[in-house]
Design a protein around this nucleic acid. Structure first.
Lengths: 324, 324
DNA sequence: ACTGTTTCTGGGAGCGTTCCCAGAACGCCG
DNA sequence: CGGCGTTCTGGGAACGCTCCCAGAAACAGT
């Protein structure tokens, strides 16, 4: 393993000072074309890669952002939503900064984050009134939250338009003639759960909206919720499920109890994340775009740009397949 | 944002030199209990966190490892397998080192990796004869591969016992009286695909083993493969699918073509990663353990431990549910 | 020509650690 | 009591960059 070239070697080969090399590398102004070209040539010739550690140390900038999964159980990782999100984040980063992954065990995470190891944090899957947010804000660390936070004042966030999506899905169920429409809602301590439930409620206004059971965004939770719903009203003929992954569980229960889908019961999910039998009608959200937005917003914040939107709401669209 | 304390402040408060502080932080030998206690107290009092950048720079160690997804498309990310893997990796890391995520766009990744920014790399989802491995080895970067690499000589790897798992699944289909047993295999350029196919072949020895179609580890691929299989032999009565995610696609096609599962066609998947209708019989692999093993192995390698096993094969187990 | 302004350039002081080396303190043995 | 090993400690030179400052060069305007 031959030692890697340093900036001074590049400087010597290019016949300039290391200051100039540094300027070229950071595309700073006030560099002659001649010097720029010479440096670039030297960089290629020596196969030079700047040392990140030295850069961070001298530049007071970590060149890394954290993706924090605020979920001790690590449940999120199994969620296809998360996979797409990460793809988006990564795409937007485009090698500019490193992505450090963290799963939140309350204490240590904030210590690490405020320790100056990252320039900013993407916080995802926040439950209830997590203190993490306020801690980070107090320390002045740029933060963008994925999914509307339930507390935390003025933190910028990116979210899908859960309310409208849920509303449209439910409207579709109503207009296709369903009479007893239930919902398997998300956790009551997450905005995604609450907002989708609110959308369902809005669409149901004027009808009996009592068939509500909360799930936990897992297929097991979805199954349990479906069973509970069926016990409560064996005659229900439609269900809006706040997540595809829960819909999968619901589908299993419906099948086991001899209900045909969509014959006896229509099902609409949310996310457009999983293939199912029968193919699931669902509310589609572009998770990759979600991830890109999140990242773009954070990087802009880190760069100190002005006039940024406090938050962004991404549109959703109803995708009709077989299940409803 | 008040400036963070440095090592010398800790030293001053503790009444020792920064060398001693450093020794305590790295739990190096030759430090008196007295000094150790004083330093620890000072650290707590000042809420001191060592600066990673400075550490890496001075210590010639990045304190980070890379998780490389050797898949330009980013397909892996949607795979539940990957989610579990990452959970395992993260658990094993336990805050000791950072995890940097990378998706392989052939060129840049190896440049970055050999640039000294990480102490080692976990390479996952390798296709065919990826040159990445040899590049890394030439540069002396510790590497552990997830899933047996098709080329690359003596790289240590961790893998599930795909062969045995597939064999057992197929044996089960045979012993339960199925006559025409097909398989949807994985990609022909990945060991996971090849080994599972080999297991199926071994179990099928003595019977006609011609119903083979390759999929690409996506549900769409699984659907296409199932359709092709059905066209080739409408009377097939069982199929071993090399990945649950493909099985989902296959299930959709079977359903669409009026085949009941398991009545007309028995289905066994691989991974135990997705809920389905009907619940899928599958070959279970402990992906979290997989991730932990992978990481443990790499860290051991990085630490220069001796006598490490060249590779590890994790057992699989057949989980029987409804589909077969 | 003389000063001012702008573009370019190099020198060198940090950044916060680790690691090496040399020295202090403390035994213990002859 | 002198010498020698062993444990402990502090000083200071790296590590490879960025950033500040001051000087050189180029080009104006008077």
């Amino acid at each position: 393993m031959n030692r890697r070239a340093g900036i001074d070697e590049v400087a010597r080969l290019a016949g300039v000072s290391k200051s100039t090399v540094s300027r070229v590398l950071n595309s700073a102004p006030h560099v002659s074309e001649r010097a720029k070209a010479a440096v670039k040539r030297a960089v290629v010739q020596l196969d030079y890669t700047p040392n990140q550690a030295a850069r961070s140390l001298a530049g007071h900038r970590a060149n890394a952002i954290a993706l924090v999964l605020s979920e001790p159980s690590g449940r999120v990782l199994s969620d296809p939503f998360f996979a797409g999100l990460m793809r988006g984040v990564h795409a937007e980063l485009a090698g500019r900064t490193q992505l450090v992954l963290m799963m939140s065990q309350p204490g240590d995470v904030s210590a690490y984050l405020t320790g100056g190891h990252v320039d900013g944090a993407l916080v995802v899957s926040l439950h209830g009134h997590d203190p993490l947010l306020s801690v980070l804000q107090e320390n002045g660390l740029p933060v963008v939250v994925g999914g509307r936070p339930l507390s935390g004042g003025a933190v910028p966030f990116v979210d899908s338009d859960n309310f409208t999506g849920a509303q449209e899905a439910t409207k579709h169920l109503i207009s296709s003639g369903r009479r007893r429409i239930a919902t398997i809602a998300g956790p009551a301590d997450m905005a995604a759960g609450l907002d989708r439930l609110a959308g369902w409620r809005r669409a149901m206004s004027g009808r009996a909206a009592d068939l509500v059971v909360h799930g936990d965004f897992t297929s097991e939770g979805g199954a349990a919720a479906m069973a509970a719903l069926l016990d409560r009203d064996p005659a229900l003929d439609a269900v809006f499920v706040a997540a595809d992954i829960m819909a999968l569980g619901a589908l299993q229960v419906l099948h086991a109890r001899g209900r045909s889908v969509p014959g006896d019961v229509a099902v609409i999910g949310f996310d457009d994340s999983v293939p199912a039998v029968p193919p699931l009608s669902t509310v589609r959200q572009d998770v990759e775009k979600f991830g890109r937005m999140l990242t773009w917003r954070l990087l802009a914040e880190v760069d100190g740009e002005e006039g940024l939107p406090p938050s962004v709401l991404l549109p959703t669209s109803l995708v009709l397949r077989t299940s409803a």
